[in-house]
Amino acid sequence: MKIFFDLFPVVLFFAAYQWGGIYWATAVAICASILQIIVLLSLKKRVEPAAWIGLVVIVIFGGLTLWTKTHPIGGINPTVFIRWKPTVLYWIFAAILFFGPLVLGKNPMRALLGKELHLPDTLWGKINLAWALFFSFLGAINLYVAFHYPEAVWVKFKLFGLMALMIIFIVIQGILLAKHINQNNDQQ
């Protein structure tokens, strides 16, 4: 259920794009992200740091998209900002994963999943690195599609392509971790 809630702004972005174009989609995504946080806060649920980061990024980059549509900046297509938004978000996540262990002295993936998974320290390091590299890749592939294909293709890729890549990565990681998870269940 949580994954559907997390995808709420992206799905609404796609639907709004089909109905009214990129500017409507951008406005809807901003509103949906704000609403998502409001709902969590009103239900007294914890708002994950990733959700706060996502909100800030969509408000800034979506806001710049909408603002520059009515206040043009010489020669800059206003949609450049919204097309950069997924890359910026993924690269922020990658930076947190790359530099978190150095700056904070903690493994971010272990902090996130350590209650559910009991794994050796070396494996946590590999998981953290794998996710950091994966988010770096997602950011790069988003830029490629955003600036080498028509806008409509990018919008579809943003929902379906990036989600498919995420699901494939999670399944592969689950398969690779299964033996460690089974070993931990046997020891308990």
Rank of each mutant, 00 (worst) to 15 (best):
D121W: 05
A130P: 01
I76P: 02
I181L: 05
I38E: 12
F14K: 09
T26V: 11
N77I: 08
N184Q: 13
L41N: 11
E48H: 10
V39R: 08
F4G: 11
F134S: 02
L133I: 14
I92Q: 04
I37S: 07
P49K: 14
V88F: 12
T65V: 14
P49L: 09
V11R: 03
Q36P: 10
N142W: 02
G75K: 10
N107L: 04
D6E: 14
S136H: 05
A16F: 00
M163S: 12
G114K: 03
T87P: 00
A16M: 05
K85D: 05
F99L: 12
Q188H: 14
I37V: 15
L165F: 06
N107G: 10
V59D: 02
K44V: 10
G63W: 05
Q183F: 08
G174Q: 13
R46N: 13
K106T: 01
P120Q: 12
K45I: 06
V59S: 12
W154S: 00
L165C: 11
I37W: 13
G62E: 06
K45S: 09
I141E: 09
I175S: 11
G139K: 01
K85A: 05
F4E: 15
L117E: 05
Q188F: 10
A111T: 14
A152W: 13
W91T: 01
N142M: 06
F8A: 08
I127W: 00
I127T: 04
V155F: 06
F134M: 07
I82S: 03
F61H: 01
Y23Q: 05
P120F: 11
V171G: 12
I175F: 13
